[in-house]
Amino acid sequence: MNTFGTRLKITTFGESHGKAIGCVIDGFPAGVRIDEAFLQSELDKRKPGTSKFSTQRKESDKAEILSGTFEGFSMGTPIAVVIFNENQHSKDYDNIKDLFRPSHGDLSYFAKYGIRDYRGGGRASARESAARVAAGAFAQMLLAEFNISVKSGVFAIGKVQSELESKDFDFEFADKSEVFALDKALEASFKEQITQALRTKDSVGAAVFTRISGVKAGLGEPLYDKLDSKFAHALMGINAVKAVEIGAGIRSSQSFGSQNNDRIKDQQFLSNHAGGILAGISSGADIELRTYFKPTPSIFLAQETMDKFGNNAICELKGRHDPCVGVRGSVICSAMARLVIADALMLNANASLARLKKAYE
């Protein structure tokens, strides 16, 4: 499936070493001011080659809007965005064209389709995520009309994890940090974890925290399309993500109800173990999400594998790869969270007869 969303839908297209990647956004309401500078700034955060802590593939990731806008505003028609690939080194993959790289999608894609684009992983490459970031930027333009903000940053790399409470995470510092560190005191340690992985031709995992502020109570579809399940769906769909927590997450399974319940006093919650979602519907508290990325499977150590003919083989990679995919993954987490909330806003517009009538007054 290449399409995400219910009312606000995005479809992405393209491969890592193809001519271009991009997205089509359908269901975006007319009249939203389009901020192209913001769109590009989001892509610039995610783009490769910006520091020694990411892949050295050099891409400008310049977004071109092909349709759906006029004189600086959305038209209510499909918005198409294309990002042309500029710096593919496809020959780097010639030696593994018949091999299944360990922990990549090579084997599973080949099992499903009987064919795969071995150049950088093709459609399964994290390169595709630039299109999601572009779509998420448009979603934020809509959310800004409702004073909703979505911010993400890194709170752990490898075994180095911040002990700060989520309320103390520093998003302003994360915006300036090369590794989007939410804990200023740990930025150097985070960088050292990545540098050590690079030094040993290895990679390292990371964890990302996302906070969504300004969401009023009442968003989300109960039962089979709960807001928390939509977030899990969106975030688990990001390359290399292996776990997602909402609010207290697994810690709630280790506590008593008297400890985990969010009590209410003076019209506000005294805690936020629920992470801003109750019964699949937003409670009005900040929505808090944690996303866990595995180490980048592309490492430069010789590894046992097999080829597509079933023969044992040794995989030795060349090319340019992220030593810690979770760093740039934080930008993608924000994008997907924005798409979920924007979709929920639009779905909620006709949740009651009163709201429907108001739209036609």
Rank of each mutant, 00 (worst) to 15 (best):
H89P: 03
L317H: 03
N311E: 14
F155I: 06
E187Y: 05
A337G: 04
G214V: 04
A248S: 15
F138R: 03
Q161P: 05
G114V: 10
C324Q: 04
M336G: 02
Y93S: 01
I299M: 06
V179R: 00
D343E: 11
S125N: 05
H273F: 09
R290N: 06
G158D: 03
F209P: 01
A37C: 11
A354G: 12
G326Y: 01
Q161F: 15
D202M: 07
D44C: 11
G27F: 09
M336N: 05
A344T: 09
A234S: 13
D94R: 05
A207Y: 02
R199L: 10
L219R: 01
Q88D: 12
K242G: 08
I341D: 01
A342R: 02
Q140N: 12
I10W: 01
E288R: 09
E316T: 13
E288C: 14
A131M: 09
S213H: 07
G120S: 12
K47D: 04
S213E: 14
K9G: 06
I332V: 15
N260E: 09
V81C: 04
N260S: 15
F28W: 08
I79C: 06
Y93P: 00
Y360D: 08
G275K: 00
F231Q: 01
F146E: 15
G120K: 02
A234N: 04
F209Y: 13
R263E: 14
K230E: 12
H233M: 12
G205M: 02
L345C: 07
Y113H: 14
G237Y: 05
A188Q: 15
L353F: 11
S108K: 12
V215Y: 05
I212W: 01
G326C: 08
P78A: 09
F209K: 03
C23P: 02
I83T: 04
S54C: 15
G158N: 00
G220L: 04
F180E: 00
E316S: 10
D61T: 00
K226F: 12
E192N: 15
T77D: 07
A279D: 14
E172V: 08
R119E: 05
T11W: 05
D262I: 03
A80G: 11
L198D: 06
I299S: 00
L8A: 04
E172C: 09
Q196A: 12
G136Y: 01
L345T: 03
K159G: 08
R338T: 10
G122M: 02
F256T: 15
S177I: 03
P222N: 13
D44H: 11
A135D: 04
A126H: 07
R320Q: 13
G275P: 00
Q56Y: 07
T296E: 00
K176C: 07
R119V: 02
K47Q: 13
K97L: 13
D98G: 05
K294G: 10
K230F: 06
D44S: 11
Q268A: 11
N311G: 12
